[in-house]
Design a protein around this nucleic acid. Structure first.
Length: 553
RNA sequence: GUGCCCGUAGCUCAAUUGGAUAGAGCAUCAGCCUUCUAAGCUGAGGGUUACUGGUUCGAGUCCAGUCGGGCAUACCA
């Protein structure tokens, strides 16, 4: 319909000899009394034409001609908006498409033939996932779904490091707990991992190996056992939220020589050196970010000879380019905010198209329990665990809570509210609409000789629907493809939540105001078909968000 | 100090990325079930969009400054 209007406006501009120097934008006014669609083209072009906007709008509308079956009225309003009022039958004719497209309704072509990589979670295996990590996980998973719906071939990747200092502390923490279990008095430092899971791993080791490891000075077994144990745990937690990765990228690979005989890390240093961005002082190797206007250089290789995290990060992103991804999406928590600009600068210097990289940063989650804000720390083991949250509120609510707020805003997760399992929980409102439709269709099939096949065949009957509730619902269903497109453009699934809420709201209102099963046969069928189309949109949207679509509640 | 994010109804958050009279949920108050799921619907009250300037046809949105909150400013990842 937008294309239809755009095309006619173009023709009108041409007829009026007005150069169409700017793109024609068709918007939906916030208030439906201002038309079904509107354009600000007269406001935008007024300056160039040397006319006042309302005059220009007048000139454009004089040259517009629509068929009576499509646009019923065109008017000029406010400072020079042109508002269009559509014929209900024209709208409902489009709604029929939803049934034909079914699961594919809303799919876009923007990513057709392109590969995208979405990196998310990427927690190192040092402990169970916390609520804070959960937000990034759900956000990343939804963004991956959205890109898939736009036609991209998506790889979901988890980047992790199982070497380094944190892992040493982990294995030492397990060893000390093991010694404790063997009855040996040890001093457990504050700097070590305090969580109960450390004891559980230690107990598992004791059970399998007995006390024969007491004198072992090799941390390897402790580390391996801890890593396997924790990684399994992390994957299980993610699985409960229906999050799975296609690929796990071990940072260690970047330290090892590849076919060329040089490690990816070293290749980055060599390449940056060639461009004149490497310096050596204080025993370390530095990325000369001062040349880019920053206050300090950044360490790439520490004086100990080990790379800092920045170097493998750059090398890792080089592999994303070398692996041929057209779109590179990273999901980070706010604490990593300082990290990626350096990576991007380095990639630019190395000649990669950094425009392909998009970073979605989610702000922190604070949890409120009994009105008190809880600070979280993985190390101290007092963090709120994602698993506990899922136990409390279920996977659907967990997912929805994480994405129902803009990722740029701090998320205040009120545990008490989420635990309520009542209508306060917004996930019920959406799912209830779906369950209601399912229930209605069940009755219709049993008692009213209605079937999905027959419904699709009779979809044209929807054009008989004329009440404002019905038209508004149908018209809103047609927004779905645009909503996905918007979500993909700004990497923000929250828009989908908001949209589905409005669909559910309009359906509930329609259901309240328009009797369905008791209506005359044609109208009854038409309303059932409209319900069917609504259910399809809800289902498609739920799939993007990763929440279930219950048939009854 | 510097960089990034945030500041909107009593509370939690939206606002089609610069559009028209700033909207939802919760909470409060008043209505709607002998009728397809009341986990629903209808209505009411509630706002100087932190503050001050600026940019333009038009600003919650962009720019500058001020105030307040969060995160980051490691040879930790």
């Amino acid at each position: 319909m937008r294309e239809y209007l755009t095309e006619h406006i173009k023709q009108a501009l041409h007829k009026a000899s007005i150069p169409a120097s700017r793109a024609i934008k068709i918007e939906k006014p916030s208030d439906s009394r201002l038309g079904d669609f509107s354009t600000n083209i007269a406001l935008v072009l007024a300056g160039e034409c040397g006319m006042n906007p309302r005059q220009l709008a007048q000139k454009i509308t004089e040259n517009l001609s629509f068929s009576e079956t499509t646009v019923s009225k065109t008017e000029i309003a406010g400072p020079g908006f042109i508002n269009f009022y559509l014929e209900p039958a024209f709208i409902m004719k489009q709604v029929e498409q939803i049934l034909t497209s079914s699961d594919r309704f809303g799919r876009g072509l923007a990513g057709e033939g392109k590969n995208a990589i979405v990196e998310y979670v990427s927690a190192n295996p040092t402990g169970p996932l916390t609520i804070g990590r959960g937000r990034g996980g759900v956000l990343g998973d939804c963004i991956a779904n959205i890109l898939e719906a736009q036609g991209y071939t998506v790889t979901r990747e988890y980047y992790f490091n199982d070497a380094g200092r944190q892992m040493s502390i982990l294995s030492e923490s397990v060893r000390l707990r093991y010694l404790e279990l063997c009855g040996i008095a040890v001093e457990f430092p504050d700097t070590h991992y305090q969580g109960d899971y450390i004891r559980e791993i230690a107990a598992a080791i004791l059970e399998k190996h007995g006390e024969k490891l007491i004198d072992s000075d090799s941390p390897e077994l402790f580390k391996q056992t801890a890593e396997n144990h924790i990684f399994t745990h992390i994957k299980n937690t993610l699985h409960r939220l229906d999050i799975t990765h296609d690929s796990y990228f071990n940072e260690h690979r970047l330290y090892q020589e590849d076919e060329s005989g040089i490690s990816p890390n070293q290749q980055v240093i060599d390449a940056l050196h060639q461009k004149g961005f490497i310096d050596h002082y204080d025993g370390a190797t530095w990325f000369m970010t001062t040349r880019l206007g920053q206050e300090k250089d950044k360490v790439l290789v520490k004086s100990s000879g080990e790379p800092s995290y920045r170097l493998p990060d750059i090398a890792y992103h080089v592999t994303k380019f070398e692996r041929g991804f057209d779109e590179i999406v990273n999901i980070f928590g706010a604490d990593h905010i300082d990290e990626y600009p350096d990576v991007i600068e380095a990639l630019k210097i190395l000649g990669y198209d950094a425009g392909r990289i998009r970073v979605a940063i989610n702000q922190f989650v604070t949890t409120t329990v009994n009105g008190e804000t809880v600070k979280m720390s993985t190390r101290k083991g007092n963090a709120d665990l994602l698993d506990d949250l899922i136990d409390d509120v279920g996977a659907d609510a967990t997912r929805l809570f994480f994405i129902m707020r803009s990722k740029d805003s701090h998320l205040n997760f009120d545990i008490d509210l989420a635990k309520k399992q009542s209508k306060d929980n917004p996930v019920f409102y959406l799912q209830y609409a779906h369950a209601r439709i399912c229930s209605l269709l069940r009755i219709a099939e049993n008692e009213a000789d209605f079937s999905l096949e027959k419904g699709s065949a009779d979809a044209h009957l929807m054009r008989k629907l004329t009440s404002a509730h019905e038209i508004q619902l149908g018209f809103t269903l047609l927004d779905y493809p645009d909503v996905i497109e918007t979500c993909a453009r700004i990497l923000e699934p929250q828009k989908m939540v908001e949209y589905l809420h409005s669909v559910a709201e309009l359906y509930h209102r329609f259901y309240q105001e328009c009797p369905i099963l008791k209506a005359d046969p044609d109208i009854r069928t038409a309303r059932l078909v409209l319900s069917l189309a609504t259910r399809q949109v809800l289902r498609n949207g739920f799939r993007i968000l990763g929440i279930s679509a219950p048939k009854s509640m």
